[in-house]
Design a protein around this nucleic acid. Structure first.
Lengths: 220, 220, 220, 220
DNA sequence: AATGAATGAGGGTTCATTCAT
DNA sequence: AATGAATGAACCCTCATTCAT
């Protein structure tokens, strides 16, 4: 093996470590909570020893913050573009962009990060500002723009936009929390499918938003 | 003070101990999480010594379970009666039962118990069954009955009742969680009032449920 | 046993703990150094468990500081009074006050505290100010007063007082250090007796200080 | 640079490694103590990596011993020759040999080795024999010979030679210790100059040793 | 020879729980 | 019943040492 290849092999492992540790940490922090997760467990799940964890993250707390940053760092940008380009109805826009996005989040490990925020903010108040800035505000702004667009075009009733946004978003977040709390404990309720529910919820809200006299939101 | 009076005072305090401990434990478990809360802190906040805590609860874990039992033990019965007796529209019934009830929950310390469930179920799976049995099922049954009533009477569209229930309930639970996580950390968002939102959310959902051709849900 | 007696028994142990811990800590810190001494060793030598140490001192470092404070806290006051009251020659005063004092120090566990200072000041610079203030300055001032008194009375040559003080004091401190370093490792050098040396050293220095033409310092 | 020159450079660096490591180790061990110094710090200060340290010394402890050997290995030989050749007064000899030698020691990094001995002998008793054999005994023998020479020649009082040697030597060792402990922490005491003190101390002791009737030790 | 990633034993500190008073 | 001193298992983190590259 050449020196370059050697270095590469070693490098490859080293480069992969932080991600492996973050993945392990997310799983365990979400499952057991930060305080109840031992640093060594995280290391073991990542396939390294206790000491190695500390080569990459200076403390368990910094590891938590890195996990949060990774999974809740701004991901809204893509959505913004979609909103700008869309030229159909606001109802379609919401159904497309929004329900797809939440399905993806729910299916991804990032869904657990919401539980982490809920469980740990009060112990690590720095997280509050980060979450507010990176998730809450851009998220509400994005959905708010869509709703406002519908109101402006006469497609929706002139509702309180912020409230409508909450009606749309809160159940989605709750689905994420549920997935990693009760949902992981009880046998799946027959007949409940989160993905189906997302669509149903949007439909219901869209019917609530629809302007009287305007055509009702189409069922697909 | 007479000896009898002293005895009475002491007795009263003694009788109050378990409740004081539960109150202190709820506060702290909700704020910091179960694992990050020290048994001694709970005792101190309840005004007793560490040892005394263990006279009333055999372990920190049992204390957690008692807290959960206290705050999430069946409270739905009252609602059931209201449903049976009501003879107005289902929309009114929903607004009444539901908005009053959630306002009460949100304002009470019990709101914190939802955060406890979300944060701790996976560490104490016994809680899952309890919560499912005592809260989820009766709660969904209650709201479900009201929605079904509206569908049956032709007041509501023939929607998927379970989905509508989730659309109604999930944001409420999320409000409880928010109150004890982010909401306790960031300065109150101007213009956001949970109680107002509850009404707005019901109105929105009721508009979504309303049968075409039927009169729209009245704004109050 | 009466309640008072009970309390007393328990209290007695509790009151004695800090001193027992300080004694154990002094021994071990002096012998092995601060960093090489384990907190648990200190606890064991004091006859308690690891956790108990932390009921009395919040950290190993605070334990070190308490040890230093205990053994190097101002003890010079007594000497001051003796100097004020003495009305014999300065040579006699020095022999009496000073050699007695150093014999006492050398025989006591406090002698080890000098080794602690030498070994640990650079890691705990707060100790420097304390030692300077509580030991170096009052000590040098005291001895300096005696020497100055002799110079003023014509008993001693008009020497550099500060230098003479160092000539007197440095070997004494060195004896303390030696006792707890080399002196604890090699078989006692035959013929070397620290107490005898203290007197010999004073005599030598006094002969060096003595004014020409004045009667030489008497040998005792 | 030619390959040959490169090889030379590398060789030169490689040859210098052990010395660079010893220098770094002395500095750090003296400053922070052996136990509180990390092997990696030593390597870093010597400009090599952690692993390289272990190519030259099999353990941190062996590094300590090498440091001690380097700085306290027999250096007294030069002094012995000076004593043999000297034909002036013993006082002059003492001043010359001794004051020069100690000034050199105090100014050199070797002064720190005394602190190392004091701090670490009890953890590494092998050091005790080495120090006794290489430093204490030859040093005391050398100074002792000079004093004895003065006594024999009638220049000095017939004092206890061993005691006089201690009176001469202990303050010097103490100066070395001071330099690397308190002296490194507190702002330099105004008016204190170790080199001046060395001369003052010799003068004082020589006056104490001087035979009555014999000419007093000259001030230089 | 040199590096530095990896290891894991070890040590400081915390805290649930016990129990003598 | 109430206390709080004491315990020791457990956990976070460090660092001497190893070894693949």
């Amino acid at each position: 093996m050449s020196t370059a290849a050697e270095a590469t092999t070693r490098r490859r492992r080293k480069d992969a470590r932080p991600q492996e540790l973050l993945d392990a940490a997310l799983d365990l922090f979400v499952e057991k909570g930060f305080a109840a997760t031992r640093a060594e467990e995280v290391a073991q799940r990542a396939g390294v020893s206790k000491g190695t964890l500390y080569l990459y993250y200076p403390s368990k707390e910094e590891l938590l913050k890195a996990v949060i940053r990774e999974h809740l760092g701004s991901r809204i940008a893509a959505g913004e573009a979609a909103v700008d380009q869309h030229d159909g109805t606001s109802a379609d826009l919401l159904r497309e962009v929004y329900s797809h996005w939440w399905q993806a989040v729910l299916a991804s490990p990032s869904s657990g990060a919401f539980k982490l925020i809920v469980s740990e903010v009060r112990n690590f108040p720095e997280l509050a500002g980060f979450y507010q800035r990176e998730v809450v505000e851009p998220g509400e702004r994005l959905i708010g723009r869509i709703v406002q667009r519908g109101v402006d075009s006469g497609e929706f009733e002139p509702v309180d936009v912020a409230a409508a946004v909450h009606s749309l978003v809160l159940p989605m977040v709750m689905l994420c929390l549920h997935k990693h709390s009760l949902g992981a404990c009880v046998p799946h309720q027959e007949g409940f499918d989160a993905v189906v529910f997302i669509r149903q919820h949007i439909d219901l809200v869209l019917r609530g938003l629809a302007r009287h006299g305007a055509p009702a939101a189409r069922r697909r």
